[in-house]
Amino acid sequence: MDVPLFDIGRFDSHKLDIVRLAWCRRLGLDDTTLDTDADRVDHLVTTDDITVLHLAGTTVVAGPDWALESSRSVPGMPGTERTWLSALLGDRSERYEIGSHTLAYGSEIGHSIDVHDPLISHDAVHARNLAAQCSDADVAEAFGDAVSREWFTLLGDDRPADSARSLATAGYSEEQLILADMRVLTDPDHRRRGHAQVVGRLATNDAIDDGLIPQWRSRPENSIARRLAARLGYIEIGACHTAVARA
């Protein structure tokens, strides 16, 4: 299954306006800044950190003056890879910690989870139990930011709930009271069995029920996470690259 790159035409235009609003507020822009046909928006910041957002055909470069100036000489537009940001940084690259994520958004309730009557826990202890079974790298990617809403943890049904194994979990945090930034983690011994799709669907539906637009961030090289998002109905419409100055 191939993941469409920046499949903007399939995403609802009204919801795209709301996503743009959320990013304007996150980046400290005027609420209407991304309501534009311009290819590019520059935003001067007072820190050394840099954000390059490519969303629905518009690139935002937020950074110090030297970064804005440097970016004007970088050809093309930033895709999912970090090469565009690396070119902007030039010989300053070693001074920064670089991160890249694709951005996909969901808008419709899904009804198929391919599991009859799954055993679901909303207790955070089951999510913590799962994290203890996973690598530090997987936990950091899935839960680098705190989950502020309810957990959906799929439990094995071969034991009572209080001793059942946690198979997969999902949750989300609210951003700007607009987006639901999704988190999904699966037990490494129980992957490729559809468990992540079950909890991902439940958490996505919960976010939509609460009036939020679900946001799915994945490392560009994490094709498994990106394919899972596509199966859940998320549409990839952009990418965000960050360069955080090392202490």
Results as ranks from 00 to 15, higher is better:
11 F>S: 04
56 A>G: 01
33 T>C: 09
207 A>S: 08
64 P>N: 02
40 R>N: 00
142 A>K: 09
208 I>A: 09
53 L>M: 02
128 R>V: 05
182 M>G: 08
173 S>E: 14
161 A>K: 13
40 R>G: 00
242 T>W: 12
244 V>Q: 08
155 L>M: 02
244 V>M: 07
178 I>A: 08
29 L>W: 01
189 D>S: 15
11 F>H: 03
202 L>N: 06
66 W>K: 05
144 G>C: 10
228 L>F: 04
120 I>S: 06
9 G>C: 04
82 R>L: 10
161 A>I: 10
123 D>R: 12
202 L>D: 09
239 A>L: 10
143 F>Y: 14
68 L>F: 01
79 G>W: 07
222 N>P: 10
190 H>D: 11
148 S>H: 13
165 R>Y: 06
111 H>Q: 03
52 V>H: 11
44 L>D: 00
63 G>E: 02
146 A>K: 15
219 R>P: 01
114 D>R: 15
91 D>K: 14
208 I>N: 08
16 L>Y: 01
135 S>T: 14
190 H>S: 15
220 P>Y: 03
77 M>A: 14
87 A>N: 13
33 T>H: 04
113 I>Y: 12
192 R>V: 00
217 R>S: 14
207 A>I: 07
213 I>P: 12
196 A>M: 08
26 R>G: 06
230 A>M: 13
159 R>T: 05
135 S>G: 15
230 A>Y: 09
146 A>I: 12
110 G>Y: 01
56 A>K: 11
152 F>Q: 05
92 R>G: 00
187 D>E: 11
183 R>Q: 15
34 L>C: 02
180 A>C: 10
234 Y>K: 06
193 R>E: 13
246 R>F: 08
65 D>F: 15
105 Y>A: 07
91 D>C: 06
22 A>Y: 11
190 H>A: 14
37 D>L: 12
80 T>A: 13
9 G>T: 03
20 R>G: 01
98 I>S: 04
60 V>P: 02
126 H>R: 12
88 L>H: 04
72 R>Y: 08
96 Y>D: 03
117 D>W: 01
119 L>W: 04
42 D>E: 13
231 R>F: 07
41 V>C: 04
83 T>W: 14
4 P>E: 00
159 R>Q: 12
139 V>Y: 04
96 Y>F: 15
168 A>F: 08
98 I>H: 07
